[in-house]
Nucleic acid binder design. Structure first.
Length: 520
RNA sequence: GGCCCGUUCGUCUAGGGGUUAGGACGGCAGAUUUUCAUUCUGUUAACAGGGGUUCGAUUCCCCUACGGGCUACCA
């Protein structure tokens, strides 16, 4: 007990160093980015470092561009690494393929200490064993119960082993899992998890191709890079006991990082964890940025291109599996860093909600000023001779009706082009027998006005209604139809003010067009 | 199959031995608005089931069910 306390407090004093360690097998989906984010938040909260390490020990699955994609994604979200493949650092290189020379010595060390052994069994032999067991509906694994019946340095004599090695026989190095030992993981999110080592198989640590497996490379690098906390997805929980055992076997128990296994992001439609292959199938992007598969050319859409703001996306991600325990929902990055805590991370998997995501973006859109949005949208507006002030007015008018910035763009057409088509439903419902006459009369009334401000237009309009004993419903919809082509939208007098007298009168001229040109 | 993790409104979640089980999204209704949207108000809806422990359990324990993960010389 005393010892546990001591080593615990020693760990608490360590400088916080966390890493995000993806395998470059394709674009990281939102779950991966969330893991990166939580690592970052945890690091910053504790004044620590955040490291990017690329775990590319499986050459067969390497996908070019995946690494850069991840870096671009993280940058778009607004956070950064302190060390990593792209920026270097005191523990460079940060790509495991470039650290290849490092791992063998630790595998050798494990063999020397009796914690690992050479396994000469071919893939076929092992596969055959599995198939055989499967046929009997049993499970077979290379473990403490079967290893003495296999071809390895445990069953071979030393000279036989030495001969095999000198013959350049293909071999792997397997971990010699301790016999029936309770392995304890004190997970920061899940609490105490105990697994008996007899359940574990003798995992390959070093592959016959000269590369380490994930397990070895991961533990070695975390140790060498002085990682204090391993924050990763729940899919790693089953191999955490192996990792703990490896730290012990390597004599690094005191330097072992703390573990925190994050809940998974689930598919919103049925079952299973969210995966890369879900692509666009789910009706929402699963990737932060657009991605084109270099092999198949298949394209997947990203949040950036879908129109999400990075700060909104960040907020959405942060809340998928974490909450501050207060009722605040909108968080800036700084606020997230302040509020983040691992013990507020939930234990169960979360399903993504498109509605909630849209709501977040809408909140962020409303918070942006017209000038901020103008900077974003100016180049995309159709060519026009409106002043920035007028464009900002348009933005302010359209903003409350929008979820994405691009919604403002698509709703602003009639400010730049006179409608040539008119909304069918509105025409059917609101364009009455007397509508042409009302529009014509209003045109005359407005033509007489020199003050084309929204306030004056409204007053004039109301005076006209008064005089003619008409209700709003008789005059407003037809007028709006003529000016914008739609049955709904922002305050029409504001629209007219921006459009100006000449343009408005011109649009009101085309009462005949209503009958021939409609749209849905 | 085995091992491990999980389970509060439809969704994200708060809470935690005694609460009217709270919030947000969505839905619905109403108010505001020339219309639409915004905004505001109200409303809808949950502790998987069964056993314990306890004066009392949704909260603690066990079992079951369900969901998920892992079970590769992939990560």
């Amino acid at each position: 007990m005393f010892n546990i306390f001591e080593s615990h407090s020693k760990k608490m004093q360590r400088k916080v160093r966390v890493r995000y360690a993806p395998s470059p097998t394709g674009p990281q989906h939102i779950g991966g980015i969330r893991t990166a984010l939580y690592n970052y938040l945890f690091a910053k909260k504790h004044g620590g470092d955040f490291i990017l390490r690329i775990e590319d020990t499986d050459q067969g699955r390497y996908v070019p561009g995946a690494e850069q994609y991840l870096i671009d994604s993280v940058n778009w979200c607004g956070f950064e690494f302190n060390e990593g493949v792209h920026i270097g650092g005191p523990h460079a290189p940060y790509r495991q393929s470039e650290r290849k020379h490092i791992y063998k010595q630790y595998a050798d060390q494990l063999i020397a200490s009796g914690n690992a052994y050479y396994a000469f069994d071919s893939n076929e032999v092992v596969e055959a064993k599995r198939k055989e067991a499967e046929a009997e509906k049993k499970n077979w694994q290379y473990d403490q119960f079967t290893r003495m019946r296999m071809c390895n340095s445990l069953t071979l004599t030393d000279t036989e082993t030495a001969q095999k090695l000198s013959e350049n026989s293909s071999y792997a190095i397997r971990f010699k899992t301790p016999i029936a030992e309770d392995v304890v993981i004190n997970d920061l999110i899940r609490g105490r998890v105990v697994v008996n080592s007899k359940q574990l198989d003798d995992k390959v640590l070093f592959k016959s191709d000269g590369m380490p497996t994930y397990h070895l490379a991961n533990v070695v690098d975390d140790y060498l890079m002085q990682i204090s906390h391993v924050i990763r997805g729940e899919e790693w929980l089953p191999s955490a006991p192996l990792h703990v055992l490896l730290y012990k076997a390597l004599g690094w128990e005191d330097a072992m990082p703390e573990f925190a296994h994050l809940p998974l992001l689930l598919k919103p439609d049925g079952n299973g964890k969210l995966s890369k292959r879900d692509g666009d199938r789910l009706g929402f992007p699963v990737f932060p940025l657009n991605w084109t598969d270099p092999k198949t050319g298949e394209e997947s859409s990203g949040y950036r291109e879908a129109g999400y703001f990075p700060d909104a996306f960040l907020n959405i991600l942060a809340f998928l599996g974490w909450n501050p325990g207060t009722e605040q929902e909108l968080f800036s990055m700084d606020e997230l860093v302040q509020a983040f805590s691992l013990d507020k991370v939930s234990k169960s998997g979360a399903k993504f909600s498109l509605d909630k995501a849209r709501w977040f973006n809408q909140q962020y859109l409303q918070k942006k000023s017209a000038s901020q949005l103008l900077a974003l949208l100016k180049a995309q507006f159709p060519s026009n001779d409106l002043s920035d002030a007028q464009l900002e007015k348009i933005i302010d008018l359209l903003k409350p009706r929008s979820v994405f910035a691009k919604d403002i763009l698509s709703a602003s057409d009639y400010f730049f082009t006179a409608p040539s088509l008119y909304d069918t439903k509105t025409v059917e419902k609101k364009w009455k027998e007397n509508s042409p006459q009302i529009v014509q009369e209003l045109q005359e009334v407005f033509a007489a006005e020199s003050d084309f401000s929204a306030a004056n237009l409204e007053a004039t309009f109301k005076a006209y209604l008064e005089e003619k004993q008409l209700g709003f419903g008789a005059a407003m919809p037809p007028l709006r139809l003529m000016i914008t082509g739609f049955g709904e939208g922002p305050s029409l007098f504001d629209v007219m003010e921006i459009l100006g007298k000449e343009e408005c009168l011109e649009r009101m001229e085309k009462v005949e067009a209503i009958k021939i040109a409609t749209k849905n």
